[in-house]
Amino acid sequence: MPQQVVRLGIAFAVLAIVFMAARQALVPDTFGETGHYRAAAVDSIAAYPLQYAGHDACAVCHRPIAEKKSDSNHSGVSCEVCHGPAADHAAAPGSVKPPAPRERGFCPMCHGYNASRPSGFPQIDPVAHNPTVPCMTCHDPHAPEPPVIPGACRACHGQIASQKGVSHHATLPCLTCHEAPDEHKATPRLIRPGKPDTRDFCGGCHAEAAVSPSHIPRIDMSTHGDGYLCWQCHYPHHPGTE
């Protein structure tokens, strides 16, 4: 055999042995056990920590809310959609508290009008819909129902009804402010409904001393508005606008 072949043979044999030895030493232990990959990788991926605990975990402690929600329009909405990832809270309920979004910007992420959303899904225009009031004031997020908007006068007063329907005063029956005798329905132009005519009428809800729910804005009747009548500045059917 030529000398060259012998010498090259030795060189290649050395390389081959080094390669085989390196291969033996370096291929990970679990490689190829279940396929062409490191079987141990599956276990290490499976061991990643959780961030979202899952709705079942919440229901363990928050049973009344979970039950209330399960019968509502939000039955399919998991707690952590709004309250954020809560695995840490589930692990240490005392020390970690998940947030509860109350600001107006949150709910329109789902319920703000968007032309691409499926028709039939409840949507509002966040600008016109009862401006500045947190959604929770009228809607219980754990059992949301569209608020009942009184519709008795809508047949004739449609424009006012639709305006009021998206205002702070949406849920107030018309008769809260107006006196409308039954005859008004039969002869609307002869028998006119009454209108409040004093500042104190509005003060019944909005005065500082008034007995009314706390979310209603209050003013100091003695200094606010310089003695003008309320409806000279505030339109009662859409009080958000001035």
């Binding site: 061991a47 920590p49 979202y52 899952g54 909405v77 952590e80 899904f121």
Partner: peptide, 23 residues
């Protein structure tokens, strides 16, 4: 995406499925 393999291993559904409000 891993289909949240670590969640599946603990008997949970993927996070995106968990939070999808309309299923």
């Amino acid at each position: 995406c891993t289909f949240c393999y670590h969640r599946l291993a603990k008997g949970k559904v993927p996070a995106c499925v968990e939070v999808c409000p309309t299923s």
